[in-house]
Simulated assay, not measured.
Amino acid sequence: MARLTLTTLDDFPLVNPGDDLANLVAKGLKRQQVALGRGDVVVIAQKVVSKAEDRFRNLADITPGQDALDLAEETDKDPRLVQAILDESTEVVRKRKGVLVVRHRCGWVMAQAGIDQSNVEGSENGALLLLPIDPDASAARLRAALLERLDVPLGVVIADSFGRPFRNGTTGVAIGAAGVTSFMDIRGERDLYGRELKVSTVAHADELASAASLLMGQGNEGCPVVLVQGLAPSREVPAASLIRPLEDDLFR
């Protein structure tokens, strides 16, 4: 019988710039007396990683350029916010009133370049929270620090909430990973009837992020860290492998 167990780290403290995130996670795991093993994965919300890395900007410090002013008029958004979005992006993909979808500098196609003000202290005064500069590197640093503290090679997934172009609602997506096979290519394997799989690939880290997001929630739940147990140890494939190359994008 296969079984997967997901456990929140309860009473996780609010995170501030410069906080030792690995220390907070390790203390939470020890406090709950969870028996850890190889293959276990810590899924952590992007927002707390960004806060610890001080990925803040403030609208008061941003001067919009002409492109931002034009886009702000088209989308009915604050020109300063639009400038922050453009600063984090390489391309505007879609736009309309209230919507600005861009290609983030890391390659993701997403609304507002992932810039957020929900659950951000000071947002009423213009504070913005950006995504980590390099989420795979952030995950790798966190994993290494957890290994030092816990002596167990846990996997780490940094999860964010993405909308999807052809479906309503958001779902958990992995933007960073370490010690996890983020992308599985199972082409060449056989199905139940012996047929060779020709096109099957699996966004494994996204599935972990989505499962954990059921417990993390999207509002005031205050559960930014989820431990996933029951997985077999896997080889390292970063979350960047999940980004479809531009030449394979059939919808452009």
Rank of each mutant, 00 (worst) to 15 (best):
V180C: 09
V120M: 03
V152L: 08
S234N: 11
S200Y: 03
R164A: 15
L197S: 04
P153M: 06
L142R: 13
Y193G: 15
R167M: 14
A232R: 11
P224T: 06
K198A: 12
D185K: 09
M184C: 13
D206I: 06
E148Y: 08
G155C: 12
Q117N: 03
P233H: 11
V225N: 00
E189S: 15
R235M: 13
S161L: 13
A177M: 04
L150S: 12
P153H: 02
L215V: 06
G219W: 14
L215K: 09
S213V: 13
C223A: 12
L130H: 09
V156H: 07
S234G: 14
V228N: 08
V237R: 08
F166P: 11
G217M: 10
D191V: 13
E124G: 09
A209I: 00
P135C: 02
S234T: 15
G217Y: 10
S210I: 00
G179F: 04
S200W: 03
V157I: 12
I133H: 08
S210K: 11
A140G: 05
S123I: 04
P165Y: 15
A209E: 01
V228F: 01
A212I: 01
V152C: 12
L142K: 12
I133Q: 10
S138A: 15
D191G: 11
A145F: 10
